[in-house]
Every structure is written in structure tokens, then in C-alpha cells.
Design a protein around this nucleic acid. Sequence first.
DNA 1: ATCTGCATGTAACACGTTACATGATTTT
DNA 2: AAAATCATGTAACGTGTTACATGCAGAT
Lengths: 185, 185
Amino acid sequence: MSLKHGILGLLSYHEFSGYELNRIFADSLAFFWPAQISQIYRELTTLEKAGWVQSRTIVQQDHPNKKLFRLTDEGRQELTRWLSVPKADEPLSSKFPIMLKTFFSSDLSFEWNLADLKRLRQKYEDELRRLRAANIEKEFAVQSVEIKPNRALYWQATMLFGQSYYEMCMRWIDSVVAMIENQER
Amino acid sequence: MSLKHGILGLLSYHEFSGYELNRIFADSLAFFWPAQISQIYRELTTLEKAGWVQSRTIVQQDHPNKKLFRLTDEGRQELTRWLSVPKADEPLSSKFPIMLKTFFSSDLSFEWNLADLKRLRQKYEDELRRLRAANIEKEFAVQSVEIKPNRALYWQATMLFGQSYYEMCMRWIDSVVAMIENQER
DNA sequence: ATCTGCATGTAACACGTTACATGATTTT
DNA sequence: AAAATCATGTAACGTGTTACATGCAGAT
């Protein structure tokens, strides 16, 4: 029930095509809301049927034509309604595939699990570096979105979450490695 | 692609009915893999068609009959195959609905957001308490699952993750509250 | 009397993923 | 010459959610 609202949120900043929305998702929202471009296109048609967005076609000569979507008044109302639902009412935790595997990891050897966790730690480290280097404000500026200080504040808050999350995951791996090494003796 | 494997994993411990599997999911795996009972039933029929599990019906007099599922050799192979795929190959981050909302929170007032974050913090605190009080080993013992020390080790690892996650979320809220209060002045 | 627990499921819908199709332009 | 970028989408399948149906036993 939320890719729809992510799209409404972005369209509340500016008019975008499906293709542009996909870029923004990949650049700025992917950490907490990965999205496929095909799904974005589908949701856009659903949103238009619902009357929450409206499209107009821009004819281009050097590139294929594009369809720009803008938020309608009803769409803006729906966005505000969604935002007004307390965060505490959302399901707190989603799915953590890595934990599901960890839960059943006793089937494999200690050595294998230690090596596997090491690789995973490296991947978290890489992702953390990528996140720290990311610059949402710049990316939005490229898309000619106005950077109001309040907006930037909440963008930064989500970036902070991403970094805290990866750091926590790395500390968790260190603890588990210690637990395994203790058990081994 | 993973509820299937969660079920295979549990059936590698012991024979269970759909109803029992649902209990175990709710008691022990819900934090990192919430599951609906209707979906569990559906996956069980899919798994049986695939030849990964096999059922037998237990006739009962005081209660409705029940269908116990056991892992086949092919099922065990599939479980091992899945476990052997490096964790680093899994998608690192899933969806965080709370972050999606946070990202677009500039539409609402500082006061509203502060109050909303406060409520959310309380909810994390409650969940953390619940998790700390949970005792997977006991719950499995009730289901007559053998508690091998290696199993218990990885169960604990996932519990540790849950706790670290909630603690991190609470610290994150504290930081964001401070950010908002700084901006306000 | 009403609710909870035991036990199994179906149906409809919503959301997510993967693969495929098209075709010009621009960069490597 | 090959790959990436711009741009839109469809089809099929897989996964997840919500609502509904059934019915007995035991506890409040």
C-alpha cells in the first residue's frame, strides 16, 4: 500500500515521468523502498484511474515522447491522509531474509558460517560507504526540485537511519562471530 | 521466495501441522518474517506438489483431524541449497515503511512530527521489552523440538539482532527529535 | 451465552518480480 | 561495434493480505 504513496510524495515536489521517478527511487529511496520500473508504470496507471494524478504527453524529437504526471487535488489529499496516519500504526518490522537464514544456519559448519558472515560484513561496509557518499539534495537539484530546509531535514533523517542500520548490522556480525568462536572451543 | 524455506527449515526440526507452524512463526519468527496462516496453508500445498514435503492425516476425536507435514529428502536438499547461497547475495535491505513516511514528513508540522515520533519510540520500547522476555528455547521445547546447542546459538543470534535493531531505532528517534528541535529555533 | 482454542481451508484482491518488446541516440 | 541512455509498456508469475466458511470443545 505504499509505493503508491511514495510516488504521490515525489509528485508533490514536481511533475515527473515514470522514467524519472524510477531514477529518483533508485538514487534516493532504494535503501528503504526498492522499486521496479515496471511496477512504477503500473502504479501510475492505477493512480491515474483513481484520479490522484493526471498525465500529459510531451512530444520530443530526439528522444521518445514522455508522459509527465502531476498530482491532483485529490492526490494531495490522499498523500496528507496517509502521512497523518501515525507511524506507530505501521507494521514495525518487515522481512529480514538474512535473519531467516541465520535462524537455520546450524545445518552448516562453523567455518562456512564464519566465512559467510565475513563476506556479508564486507558488503555492509561497502553499502555504508555508498550511502555516506550519496547526496540526495544534489540529486534532487538535478531534477529541479526545490530544496526547502524542512524537506532536507527529513531527507537527512532517513539517510541517518540507513547509516545507523548498516553500522548496527556490522556490530551484530562481530557479536555473532564472537559467539560462534566461543562455542567452537 | 522465502516463506517456503522458513517452513522447510522448521520441518527439518520436526513434523508439524499448518496450525502448529503458524504458532511457531508467530512466537519465534514473526520479528523477521511475519506470516499469515492462510499463506502457510497455501505454501504447504505448493511444497507438497513440489515433492519437498509429505503429509499424513492424524485422526482425532475431540479435535478436528490434523495434517502433519514432514520433510522429504528432496526438501532437505532444497533447504541446504538455499542455506548455501551466501547471505551477501540476498537483497540487503527490504522495505521500511516508517522511513518512507519520514522522507515526506515535511508536509506536516514540527509539533505533529515530534508527537508522532514520541509515540513511535514508545512502541519500539514495548516491542523491545517483549523481545527480551521471549524465550525461543522454551517455545520449541513445548513443540518437542530438540534443542541442540548449535541451534540455540543461531536462534540467539537472531534475537540479538531484534534487540539491536529496536535499540538503534530508539537512538535514531532521539537524534531526529534533536534535529527538529535545532531547526525549530 | 460468548469467547478462545483447535484445525483446515478457499476466493479475491493487492503488491512485487522477471522477462520480453521496441527503437532512436549517444557514449565507450 | 557494442553498450548505455532515453522512454514506454505488457504478460506471466510469485508472494502477501483480507475476508469468509465450518464446527466442535472447553473455559469465562
